[in-house]
């Protein structure tokens, strides 16, 4: 600010007093005003050079850049939309495939379970039949065995009695005694 005010005082002071010290105030020198005329010529030429050629050309370069950037941006946006759609389709497909696979697995598991239970039932039935057969066989064998015991016991008892007493016991009496004895031992 001080710089400005000092020079302002210089400029506003009577120019005659400054003319011999300050070349800027020497308006007696024709060059002082002639430089302004030449400046006008130079500035007019510069103005037309810049306004007709320089500035519009720079403007074109900047506009071209803005257009290219806008075009690239819109292309990128379109590509993004496309990619998003592709990703969505992919996700849907994956989802669908997973659901189908799960359904398939579930069906296979159910089938296998059904088959296994059917087989188990069949096996149980055949085992049951074999068991029944075996039991029946055992029962007949046991009956046969029990039936075989009585004559052996009668013979043994009559032999023992003959040896001990020397008498032949009554057949029917012996048979009933043996029956009660076998019944007491819960064999028959």
């Amino acid at each position: 600010m001080r710089k400005l005010s000092t020079a302002a005082l210089l400029a506003l002071a009577p120019s005659a007093a400054l003319a011999d010290t300050m070349p800027q105030m020497d308006f007696a020198n024709p060059l002082t005003l002639d430089q302004v005329g030449w400046m006008a010529v130079i500035l007019v030429v510069l103005y037309f050079t810049l306004s007709r050629w320089g500035l519009p050309e720079i403007g074109k370069v900047l506009e071209n850049r803005a257009a290219v950037i806008a075009r690239d941006l819109s292309a990128a946006r379109a590509a993004k939309v496309e990619a998003d759609a592709a990703v969505a389709a992919l996700n849907a497909t994956i989802h669908q495939a997973r659901a189908a696979a799960q359904a398939e697995v579930a069906k296979a598991v159910t089938d296998a379970k059904a088959r296994a239970s059917a087989e188990a039932a069949k096996l149980a039935a055949s085992l049951e039949a074999k068991l029944a057969a075996a039991e029946a066989q055992i029962a007949t064998a046991r009956a046969a065995a029990l039936a075989a015991i009585k004559p052996v016991a009668e013979e043994a008892a009559s032999t023992i009695l003959l040896k001990l007493t020397g008498t032949q016991p009554a057949e029917d009496q012996l048979a009933s005694r043996i029956d009660t004895a076998l019944a007491a031992r819960k064999v028959a």
């Binding site: 024709p30 060059l31 002639d34 400046m39 510069l46 810049l50």
Partner: peptide
């Protein structure tokens, strides 16, 4: 034609501007 040293600098400035462009 009274072309001054000041106008030389002006011409230089104008030429530099046009050259930069």
């Amino acid at each position: 034609v009274n072309f001054t040293n000041s106008n030389e600098a002006m011409l230089g400035a104008a030429i530099v501007i046009v050259a930069i462009f």
